[in-house]
Simulated scan of single mutants.
Amino acid sequence: MFTARNWQRIKSGYRGPEDFYPLRHVGIREWGRGFTLPDSAVLGVNIDALQPGRHTEFSITNLIHVTDSNGAQGILNDQCLKKAKVKQIGEELKVLFSWWSIQVSPQEVDRKKEVRRNIIDEQLRQTIQEPPPKNVRCLQEALLKQYISSPAFLEQSYYGNFKFTYNINDLIGEYKKSVCQGKDPVFSVLGTFKYNIEIMHTVAVHPPGVRIFEQCPQLPSEVISQEGTKWVWRPESTGSEIRVLKQNEGGSWWVDECYPDCRRWEFVSFAFYLPDENPEFPVQLEFKHLTVCDMEESQRFRPPYTYMTREEAEILYQLLRCRI
């Protein structure tokens, strides 16, 4: 079980340090000032005056599991997800989980961006005196880039070129049948993982009565909630950039980077607990669940060195398809 209620260093590695705060989905104002502006603090809103309910809400219907070429071939050969990853979640405490991330639909992203675009329009009207500059549309689009644009909303991945997508409630149903033996799973706040410019809020999905999670509060949290089959995510930071509106001595307006020019962005992962004595999650992951995505080029030297271009991944995808 957990033994700490503050930030603890889990490891330092290729992608930088990994810190963990157990039992809570830590809010953005508790991260420290560096790289920590929420959406509502950009464009001059006072971060200390951030009000509840200002978060953008996203409906979640799918979870994704991203893997490399070796992982995709193994999953398709087995026709299910058998292997889990060991995760350290405390001092001398390592647990087997099957990791899935939430996916926001492109339609949902477009709707929320349109709302944000209207907010920016109003802010520009209040800030810039009439007549509006000729480049007002460019100003709008430049400011919009800092919202709903982080890797959490992109098809591109840091972890591989192959993405398995599953309906969130169907996946939970499979877990209920296989791991929970028909009992309703419990959704607990495992904690918050902090990286250089990423924050991962984690939900532990587990059978009832597992002692490891007995101190974990159950959902809802401020970040994610469930009402029946409906899931809602409420991130504070949806972008990885900071852009500010400026005016020079001649009266011209432009959008400029500020220091720091990047900020931490949030995402949510579901960690499906797998007991040591039976570390398998027999979900039928068939070819219909698989798609190809770009892998972030900066990860091409990341072990186990399975980076592929989109074109190379598409070729392997077709080869795999012929074998099924």
Rank of each mutant, 00 (worst) to 15 (best):
T3C: 04
R9D: 10
G13V: 13
L23Y: 06
I28F: 11
I28W: 06
T36L: 04
D39N: 11
V42T: 07
L43W: 13
N46K: 14
I47W: 03
L50I: 13
Q51E: 15
E57N: 05
T67I: 03
A72T: 03
A72N: 04
G74C: 03
E91C: 09
E92T: 08
L93R: 12
D110G: 00
E122H: 03
T127N: 02
N135E: 13
E141V: 08
L143I: 12
Q146E: 11
Q146W: 11
I148S: 01
E155Q: 10
Y158N: 15
Y158D: 15
N161I: 08
I168S: 06
V179A: 05
Y195P: 08
Y195D: 06
R211H: 08
F213M: 02
Q215P: 08
K230F: 13
R234D: 03
P235D: 02
T238C: 02
V255S: 04
Y259P: 00
P260V: 02
R264N: 07
F267D: 10
F287P: 01
L290R: 07
C293H: 14
E297V: 14
E297M: 13
S298W: 13
R300M: 11
R302E: 14
R310P: 00
E314H: 05
C322L: 13
R323C: 07
R323H: 02
